[in-house]
Design a protein around this nucleic acid. Structure first.
Length: 244
DNA sequence: AACTTAATCAACCGCTCCGCT
DNA sequence: AAGCGGAGCGGTTGATTAAGT
């Protein structure tokens, strides 16, 4: 006797949420509060799994969410927290108001991890990756790096396999390896891995604004131009929430 | 302009945790 | 104490977009 599935998989819709679905969910949650997720889809008139509704609300629709990339301070905080908490994204997210575990996890995997690696820091242990290599000379390090490059097919001297098209021979290969780049630079004896942190120019849509500002921005941002009924409920809900 | 590759992030899946009976 | 069910968590997938050729 197995456990009942959380929802009828034949009946539920999957994939990206439509604006209409978002509207229904927001309207329902604002009127009734986020409770009993299993019942939410039915009560809100959605053909979605309760789990999916919860995720959509907590990760995307919640009015107290910030939008846009994590700023430098937030990123540093994530790194610090990760060093002590590990991959406990929800715990980390709890320390960053307006950020979700999913958002932080994604940001970690796509941005921070790479930055730490570029800085010579192991993103798992937060220890320097260069412990073993920092005593090597630059030449030894370079030799060690090249030795560990993936094996490539033997060349037979023909043009199509010649070095010009070979990744191993492409100087661009080193462009993403700051340590190697620095070794190839002016002062190879002192590897410099001071890679600037890149922040795409995306400005914060929601920076440090109030809950009330956030929700009105949310409604604007989601492009719901027929939201007057929700907005009418909104101030009541907000007042209730703030009183609690 | 067309195609390919890489990057991003919303959403899903399966597991664990925890409260209730 | 054991079993059940709902909620939450973390890992992974896949669609979309951007960048490169």
């Amino acid at each position: 006797m197995g456990r009942q599935p959380c929802c009828d998989k034949l009946e539920v819709k999957k994939g990206p949420w439509t604006a209409e679905e978002d509207k229904k969910l927001i309207s329902f949650i604002l009127s009734n509060g986020p409770c009993c997720w299993r019942a939410v889809p039915k009560l809100a008139g959605l053909r979605r799994c309760g789990k999916s509704c919860r995720l959509r609300w907590t990760n995307y629709l919640r009015p107290d969410l910030k939008r846009g990339l994590l700023n430098e301070a937030e990123e540093q905080l994530v790194i610090d927290l990760h060093a002590s908490l590990g991959n406990r994204w929800s715990k980390i997210a709890a320390r960053l108001p307006g950020r979700t575990d999913n958002e932080i996890k994604n940001h970690w995997n796509t941005h921070i991890k790479k930055k730490l690696l570029n800085m010579g820091i192991d993103p798992v242990t937060h220890q320097s990756l260069r412990k073993e290599t920092e005593t090597l000379s630059a030449t030894d390090y370079l030799a060690d790096f090249v030795k560990h490059l993936p094996e490539l097919p033997e060349t037979n001297g023909s043009d199509e396999n010649s070095c010009s098209s070979d990744e191993r021979c492409d100087s661009n290969l080193f462009k993403n390896a700051p340590l190697i780049s620095s070794l190839l630079g002016d002062d190879p004896d002192i590897p410099q891995v001071d890679v600037p942190w890149e922040f795409p120019s995306g400005e914060q849509i929601f920076d440090s604004v109030s809950w009330d500002d956030n929700i009105s921005s949310l409604l604007d941002f989601q492009g719901f131009d027929c939201f007057s009924d929700v907005e009418m409920n909104l101030s009541n809900v907000l007042e209730l929430r703030h009183e609690q």
